[in-house]
Design a protein around this nucleic acid. Structure first.
Lengths: 316, 316
DNA sequence: ATCCAGTATAACGCATCGTTATGAAGTTAG
DNA sequence: CTAACTTCATAACGATGCGTTATACTGGAT
């Protein structure tokens, strides 16, 4: 006995409202259509669904039971419609965002939480990676957005990107670090302290290498490595170690007053922190809304970060 | 955004099975039909439901969410179909059965339980009444079956009835009643004991009146009334009282060895215990199955009851 | 590079849907 | 008890969309 789902929904509407006319109105239909549907349904089922010659309409037990199932379908249909609506305006869906570990931990996680106060039904899947991985993941449609530093020269092939911050890296240390006491620290002093190596594969590590080698270090003295941002900060808090970090990460920690940056410039290619998307692929509206939210969030922070950089690094 | 429920079900089938062809097969359809449905759905929703250029087919988050709702509908549809099937063979539904109180309590309740060992999804709504009420209830479609004694002469108008037992009433008492010790009890002795009046409106009460008046009692000595069968039996157990009961009820209690019947014949019109149905109205299959179950149950009991009657009342 | 399985597209017949118009039945009020 | 009203059932019609077969296409495997 195969039953048309639409018929059951109409039955449910009629039983729920207690009348063919009202039931039809509930579904945006007209009475004769529903009336005919009920006749058909009754004929196909072969059993009466309503007791005849009674007004108001009274369903038989079978009619009532079938109507319950119809109601389940009606509810599911309504939910599906609502889902589509909210998806199309970016109020539901999934945002898969990948990015460089320190930056995600320090800045993006917080933004995710803020985003979801206005978009509670959007799920965010975060993952970590560096530019090459992220680009590949974007191309393979494993993530919707990447947030990472890119060399200004790189023109993404088929990738669209929006700059959100300058991508400057700095030398980070705890606020009580002895080097901060010197009026004019010599770059060579940097070699007197232990170093934390940023994650392998990161631009941070490359910059660290370049920096130390430029100072004449024949060999890099690494005392700690492998930890994510929280580990690195906790390590820094308890030792006079140094490491390389995006300036924005140091900025994000300013309120804690535990770490800061040395007034030292690391020579590295000009970079920008950017949001990368695939240019061609269609994106879920929630993805665009999230990207825009992030962009605006950093727009607000931009001058603060700029000021912080000037005061800390350049000592202005 | 109004979505066709059938489309969502097809989407669910495709996502569930992981392929258009298999999904179509699951629904008893053909691949191009489902393929077209998906295209339409995608166009109407305005968002991709599957990631393009991937095999095996991989749904987008939106597609997956919609498919879940479709799955709910598919499940409801399946359940509805099953419900109709089981209803049509009498394996589900509701049986509303009314009957005379003592007979229902003593014999029918047990049969209801037995019936449901083979028909667990059939609900039984029991109610009490006497012939006139029951007939009215049948006509008003408030009950599906009535089980009660009817005068053999009464030809039900528009009612179909099947006799299941002879409807003889007897004088009941406890097994230790003194009258049982007399070899040949005089009818007048009946007036020496207190009586329990059966429920008002019952044939039992009418028979009691007729019996006592025929014995010359100017006034009937009632000491207890108003109780249902369980009360009456418990009263009888504790006193040398007498009352009128259907013989079949006494029979049903034989195993308890607490009450029995006096070898006294009550003069009353010939009656039969019968199952009454409306002849015209369509009945749920479960109703017919239950009626048949009751009929067969009493067919098995008939000769036992007959033997019991002969031995107890006639002392054969 | 070729084959194969699975998917999209096309064209057609038909069931059924939704519509308006109208008749029938049940309910309520006087 | 009749009259008026409401509600449901039926009829006819145009149109949408379904399911079907046939066929072209695309991604993945050998």
């Amino acid at each position: 006995m195969k039953l048309d789902e639409r018929h059951l929904i109409q039955l449910a509407a009629v039983v729920k409202t207690g009348g063919v006319t009202e039931g039809a109105a509930l579904l945006g239909l007209v009475q004769p259509a529903v009336s005919r549907t009920l006749s058909m349904l009754e004929r196909r089922v072969g059993e009466p669904l309503f007791v005849k010659g009674r007004r108001p309409l009274q369903p038989t037990p079978l009619g009532l039971s079938l109507a319950e199932h119809g109601l389940a379908m009606l509810a599911a249909s309504r939910k599906a419609s609502d889902l589509v609506e909210s998806f199309k305006v970016g109020k539901s869906g999934v945002v898969r965002v990948g990015g460089t570990p320190f930056f995600m931990d320090a800045l993006i996680a917080r933004l995710c939480a803020e985003f979801q106060t206005s978009h509670p039904d959007v799920r965010i899947d975060q993952s970590y990676g560096y530019f090459a991985d992220l680009r590949a993941a974007l191309r393979a449609d494993q993530i919707d957005l990447a947030i990472c530093p890119i060399d200004i020269l790189d023109e993404g092939s088929g990738l669209e990107f929006q700059q959100i911050l300058p991508g400057r890296n700095v030398v980070a240390c705890r606020v009580t670090h002895p080097l901060l006491l010197k009026r004019r620290p010599q770059p060579s002093h940097l070699l007197d302290y232990p170093w934390i190596a940023p994650p392998p594969g990161s631009p941070l590590l490359a910059d660290l290498r370049a920096l130390l080698l430029s100072l004449g270090a024949t060999e890099i003295k690494i005392r700690y490595t492998g930890g994510s941002l929280m580990s690195v900060i906790n390590y820094l808090k308890s030792a006079d170690a140094l490491t390389v970090m995006p300036h924005s990460v140091v900025f994000a920690q300013r309120k804690e007053k535990t770490i800061t940056a040395l007034p030292v410039t690391i020579p590295h290619p000009e970079r920008a922190l950017a949001i990368l998307k695939r240019a061609d692929a269609p994106r879920a509206p929630a993805v665009d809304q999230f990207a825009e939210f992030v962009r605006l969030g950093f727009q607000d922070l931009r001058h603060l970060i700029k000021r912080h950089e000037e005061s800390v690094i350049w000592g202005l």
